[in-house]
Write a protein that binds this DNA or RNA. Structure first.
Lengths: 207, 207
DNA sequence: GCTTGACTAATACGATTGTATGATTTTATG
DNA sequence: CATAAAATCATACAATCGTATTAGTCAAGC
């Protein structure tokens, strides 16, 4: 069982990388198995099909992120603080899992209905975030407007940064793997979201 | 030449739709030609290859948007006003061309180097936007920080809204084609970006 | 030590891919 | 009307796709 586990793991990791880089259709079973130094039939044997492997890879990336986001949303404290922390956490998670933004894109670009497990995850995350925003609006912290639209504004920042990380780094001549750079960009994104959503009191900048 | 032009146009429109929906690899020449009621060889004949057709579709969508953005960036006036107008324009353009966000995603997700024509367009747009942001920073309107990173924050909003338009509409039970809804979401996105980038003076909200 | 089950390996299969080919039809031009 | 160019058409082609099949390898259990 030792070497077989290793094969499953190699297939899984290689598939995650290739699916992220090229998308589902552009990644062949032969691409994956040859790079994983496994046999052509290994995917069918271990995962059932190419499609099942893709779903498994996708869920393994999305699931922990969504649960983390939901946990963050449900913690107490001012809504804007929670949203700031959420952007931070989202950002960090995407930085540690650079393949995930591409999968998110593939999900967004999907036309048909999502797989059931994925749709449920998405619903839960959306509900938590929308609820948090509505609470902030009730408490006078967050600007009025349809909460789902505001939620998109929030989510757009970390995801887009995760996507454009390499591009931004090239342009700004920054090292995207330098923790200091990551922290700086992260704080900037979080601050922009907070300030953009806030109701600015007459006295000046909110805490 | 009449009906032949019609064939080229049908191929072009169908290809734009299918490439946007499914991506390049998942769209076959047979998909396109059959839906366009054209012969299987029509793409090779009129465009040279599937790849050439894709590039042509892509450029036809990106080019007018980039030139519009650059024109907006170079107009005079307070930088924040220009950025607000830019987000508005971007948003409207994406709304009128719902396929474009998907192509932008495909570009972003691309690993290898972009086609030359596309890379040049991207460079010009980026340069114009970064220049505008840096001007706003010099004039004390826009918060400090690396301009390329701020530029990503700006661009992320309209693109992500264009992507998530249908999703947002479903959640918020809004009609994404209702001009009033579009205008409202547009103003909200523009206001969030402006406020998020601004340096909030002690007196309250800037004009 | 044989057997059983898990795994790997090699190959084959039909389906689908993008493109090439050559014949045929349509269109424009004299 | 005749002729040349342009466009459409039906096929053919090799390559690649995902999966199925079958045989071979290996380690654990009795």
């Amino acid at each position: 069982m030792k070497s077989s586990d290793a094969t499953v793991d190699r297939l899984f990791l290689v598939a995650r990388r290739l699916f992220a880089e090229r998308g589902y259709a552009a990644t062949s079973v032969r691409d994956i198995t040859s790079r994983a130094k496994a046999n052509l039939g290994a995917i069918t044997y271990h995962f059932g099909s190419k499609e099942a492997l893709y779903q498994q890879v996708l869920l393994s990336l999305v699931e922990p992120m969504v649960t983390a986001v939901i946990r963050e949303c449900n913690q107490p404290g001012p809504a804007l603080d929670r949203i700031g922390a959420l952007v931070t956490q989202y950002y960090r998670y995407l930085h540690q899992n650079p393949e995930l933004p591409r999968f998110i894109l593939q999900i967004l670009a999907e036309q048909g209905p999502l797989p059931r497990a994925l749709a449920e995850l998405q619903n839960r995350q959306r509900g938590a975030l929308v609820g948090l925003i509505e609470r902030g609006q009730r408490e006078g912290e967050i600007r009025p407007g349809p909460a789902p639209v505001l939620a998109v504004s929030v989510i757009a920042q970390p995801i887009f940064f995760g996507l454009a990380r390499r591009v931004v780094a090239e342009i700004g001549r920054m090292d995207p793997d330098d923790p200091a750079v990551v922290e700086a960009a992260l704080r900037l994104a979080s601050a922009i979201v907070r300030q953009g959503l806030a109701i600015i009191p007459q006295g000046g900048i909110p805490a």
